[in-house]
Computed example of a mutant assay.
Amino acid sequence: MINALEVVTTVSVGLMVGVEFSVAFVMNRIFDALPEDSGQLARAHGGRMLGAVMPVWYISSVVLVAIRAATGWGHPGTGLAVTAGALLIVSVLMSILLLVPINNRSKTWTPENRPADWKEQSDRWDRYHYVRVAVLIAALALLVTSLV
């Protein structure tokens, strides 16, 4: 049962990290290269889609890592799993405090109603997201290391 939990936890966190990495280094670059207002519209649509899914995924990942740490308490690697969980909590706090407020605004923007500083807000979101991705990668690395 513990092995199944470890696999599910690693796959869940790994896929989440992959999605966030893809947003940062693939999708947003594609969106920014689209002509005229298409990129901004694509970001707004992505914000609506991922804004609905990612909160559940983030919280589920934190819970899975916490369960993994609790079930392995006292065994080698547990400290690494706890640290991975702490980093995932940091990523949740970053999301709530820094990224979600921008996302909640930007997901409603159209070329007709977006604010004059929409590009600066999008760039700020990107910078925060790069940091969040680094935190997530560190959490995943620690989680995987805790299992070996």
Rank of each mutant, 00 (worst) to 15 (best):
H75R: 15
V11Q: 05
L88Y: 15
S38Q: 09
V13I: 12
K119N: 06
E20W: 13
V82E: 13
L142D: 01
I96G: 08
P55I: 13
T71D: 08
V8P: 04
Y128V: 10
V90K: 10
R48H: 05
I30D: 02
W109N: 07
Q121G: 07
A141C: 04
R114V: 00
V26M: 05
V13C: 04
S91R: 08
P111D: 12
F31A: 12
G14N: 02
L15D: 03
R48V: 04
L88F: 14
N104T: 10
L64T: 02
L50M: 14
G14M: 02
A44I: 03
V53D: 06
Q121C: 05
T71I: 14
T108V: 10
G47H: 13
A138I: 08
M49I: 12
L99N: 15
S146E: 01
N113T: 08
V17C: 04
I2W: 10
E20R: 13
V11K: 05
E20I: 07
S106Y: 01
N3M: 04
V62W: 15
T71K: 14
A138T: 13
L147I: 07
L136A: 06
P115H: 07
G39Q: 07
T10A: 09
V7Q: 03
S146H: 09
F25D: 01
P115A: 13
R29M: 03
R105C: 11
A4T: 09
G39E: 01
S91V: 11
L41T: 04
W57M: 14
F21P: 01
M1C: 05
W57I: 09
V63L: 15
G74F: 07
A33C: 05
T9G: 04
A139Y: 01
